[in-house]
Amino acid sequence: MTRHPARTATVAAAAALTLVAAGAPAQARLADRTPPTAPYVLYADGLRWTGGCLPLTIGIQRSTDNVTPQPALVYEVFADGVRLGALTDNGANAAVWGVLRFTRPGPQTVTARAVDAAGNRSAPSNANVVTAYAC
């Protein structure tokens, strides 16, 4: 069997590049220390007509991140500092929106934070005072 040094070196280099490329996303996540930009709450409202108790309808302008793609960011939503839940970006709309539940009735300050794939959290969004209506 005849060996071709140039072909052997090319195959070895391609295999090494494949291994490096496969490990790059994990390394990038570990090295990512930069938080996403702060989101902006476009609207937040406690609606009486929505099914269920204490509903919060919220729309958030998307954040950006230096590593995590925009559709992969998660948005944590808070009312008076209490985490109500998280919204994921489905990538289909200009904003991220959803319905969450308040933990108590009455006026509350609603904010959001973006979280990237490395777990970095943005600064809080603008604040909106929303009244939560009981059932």
Rank of each mutant, 00 (worst) to 15 (best):
T8F: 09
N66L: 07
T64P: 00
I60H: 06
L47Q: 14
Y43G: 11
T131H: 01
I58P: 06
A9S: 13
A14F: 07
V110C: 05
V20Q: 06
Q70T: 15
T50A: 11
V99E: 11
T37S: 14
R29L: 13
A95T: 15
L100R: 07
A127K: 08
P69V: 11
L84E: 01
R3Y: 13
R83D: 01
Q27F: 13
P25I: 10
G106Q: 06
T2H: 12
A112V: 12
R113A: 02
V115C: 01
A16Y: 06
L30I: 10
G51D: 14
G51A: 14
S63W: 04
L100E: 07
I60P: 05
Y40R: 14
L19C: 06
G52L: 05
I58L: 07
L47A: 12
T50R: 13
V41Q: 10
G51C: 00
A72W: 09
D80G: 00
T109E: 12
P71F: 05
V20E: 03
F102K: 07
A15V: 10
L54I: 06
A14V: 11
L42Q: 15
G81Y: 04
T88P: 00
I58N: 06
D89P: 01
G59K: 04
L84R: 02
P124H: 10
L56G: 04
R104E: 12
T2E: 14
R48Q: 14
L47R: 15
A86I: 00
A9L: 13
C135D: 07
A79H: 04
A79I: 02
V96R: 05
L30N: 13
M1E: 12
R101S: 14
Q61D: 08
A72G: 00
N120T: 10
A92V: 10
T64K: 03
W97P: 00
C135K: 03
N126C: 03
A38D: 08
T64W: 03
Y40M: 08
T2D: 13
T57M: 08
D89V: 02
D45F: 10
P25F: 07
T10G: 05
T37R: 09
A79P: 03
A134D: 12
I58R: 07
R29F: 02
P39K: 09
A26S: 14
S63Y: 05
L19N: 11
V41Y: 09
T68V: 02
V129F: 00
G119K: 12
T2R: 15
R33V: 15
L19H: 08
A38E: 08
S63G: 03
R121V: 11
A92E: 11
L100F: 04
P35S: 10
Q61Y: 05
R33C: 03
G119Q: 12
R62D: 02
F78C: 02
A95P: 00
G59S: 12
R104L: 08
H4M: 11
